[in-house]
Amino acid sequence: MSGGIDSSVAAILLQEAGYEVEGVYMKLHERDGYHESNFAKVEHIASKMGIKAHFLDLSEEFKKEVYDYFVSSYKQGLTPNPCIACNKNIKFGKMFEFAKSVGADLVATGHYVKCDGVSIYEADDKSKDQSYFLAQIDRAVLPNILFPLGEWVKEDVKEYAKRYDFLSLISSSAESLEICFVENTYLEVLAKHMDVDVSGVAVDSSGKAVGTHKGYMHYTVGKRRGFFVNGAHDPHFVLDIKPELNQIVVGKKEELEVKTIEIKDISFIADIEDEFECNVKVRYRTRSVPATVSIKDDHAKIVFKESVFGVARGQIAALYDDEKLLGGGVIV
């Protein structure tokens, strides 16, 4: 339970369905006042529900598995996905272990996703679906997880919360931060650890210098602003990042087009063949694209049946069979 509306309603739905419920609040980072405020909400809701609320400090594990990975990835010119790392290692890793240690049979969260104990599926509310963020969790946890909001629409969740006076403080609250430890921009986080404003050269795909940039960590693949290209009349986009040279590679939109990618560190939550057809999402909030996947060891080659644009190294490619999540890997 985060103190937000989704996890609170999920807890209520489970209790009303006859489950014996206990809440767990995870402290994941050290933002001043953040946890005190949120855990106070959790304790208030838990007391009204008549359930126990645990305060679980996983900040040390989170720093190692998520925060440090986030900072290191940008330093290497990669585009990380900290939420996927958190779900894999923290929420359905360390928190799952904690739940087992206190005798819980099942773990539930407020994710908008469906699970039948064997497989994970997209939520009914496609605008809120979070299955992409579960692409690398351990399939061994599937028989023991529940997602009460998988068949709900967000607006209905908000309306449902209005039935309970003790949820009035959060029923109209703003959506939670996309990345919980980023208050404003990711650059503010990175600037605590390194100089993000080391200007450098922008080059074209042949390596020719064509302009300047204000520091390579300001950019991700597909970005089209914040750098200068000499004499450019057409929009230019970031095609790649070369941290070892402090360079960004820029070009026109058609140069972002990709038909083949490779992924590593593959994790599957479904049985698959060495070669198979599926749909692939190369980032959250994009539609999936049909492709052929060929696996060799812990790497895979993905050949798309239509072009995709703006593929960033370090992001996760999530693989689907219609609405069923198959797994995913890190784009290289």
Rank of each mutant, 00 (worst) to 15 (best):
D68A: 06
S172V: 09
G231H: 13
G18D: 05
V201H: 05
I263C: 10
A99F: 03
G50F: 09
F268P: 10
E183G: 14
V201L: 12
V71F: 02
I5H: 02
P82R: 06
L78Y: 14
A46H: 09
K75S: 13
R283H: 14
Y121D: 01
R313Y: 11
K192M: 10
E159Y: 04
Y186P: 10
V113F: 02
K52P: 01
R283M: 14
N87Y: 08
V107R: 00
F70W: 08
S127L: 11
K296Y: 10
L245N: 13
G33A: 10
D105L: 10
K41F: 05
V42L: 07
I137C: 04
Y19S: 08
K281M: 15
F96P: 05
S127F: 06
F62Y: 15
K158W: 09
Y121M: 11
F98D: 03
V42C: 12
K41Q: 11
L190S: 04
D271V: 12
V66R: 07
I269A: 06
E323S: 13
Y160N: 00
D57Y: 11
P243A: 09
E43K: 15
G327R: 03
I90G: 03
A123M: 09
E275H: 03
A85Q: 13
A140E: 14
S119I: 00
I137R: 03
W152D: 03
D165K: 11
E262F: 14
Y19P: 03
L239R: 05
G226F: 10
I295F: 03
L169T: 12
L187E: 01
M49N: 03
G314L: 11
Y160P: 00
V113W: 04
A161C: 06
D321N: 15
H233I: 14
A85V: 04
E122L: 13
S176F: 01
D195S: 13
V221T: 09
R139Y: 10
I12Q: 00
A312F: 04
G200Y: 07
K100F: 01
I170Y: 01
Y164Q: 03
K64G: 02
S173N: 12
T220F: 09
V198T: 14
R313M: 10
T286R: 15
L149I: 01
G3V: 00
A123R: 00
M49K: 00
E65F: 14
Y67N: 01
S307A: 15
D105S: 13
F70G: 01
K162W: 02
D197P: 00
E257F: 06
V201D: 12
G215F: 09
D265Q: 14
L106I: 11
G251I: 08
I295D: 00
D129M: 08
E277D: 13
D322F: 12
V311P: 01
F62L: 06
G310D: 04
E97K: 13
A17E: 15
K75P: 02
E273H: 08
S294E: 13
V189S: 04
L239Q: 04
A53C: 08
K305G: 02
E151R: 11
L239E: 07
I331W: 13
D265F: 06
V196G: 01
L13R: 11
H193E: 14
E275K: 12
D129N: 10
H29E: 15
D124L: 14
V258M: 09
K192A: 07
Q247C: 08
S72F: 03
T292A: 02
K259H: 10
I248L: 11
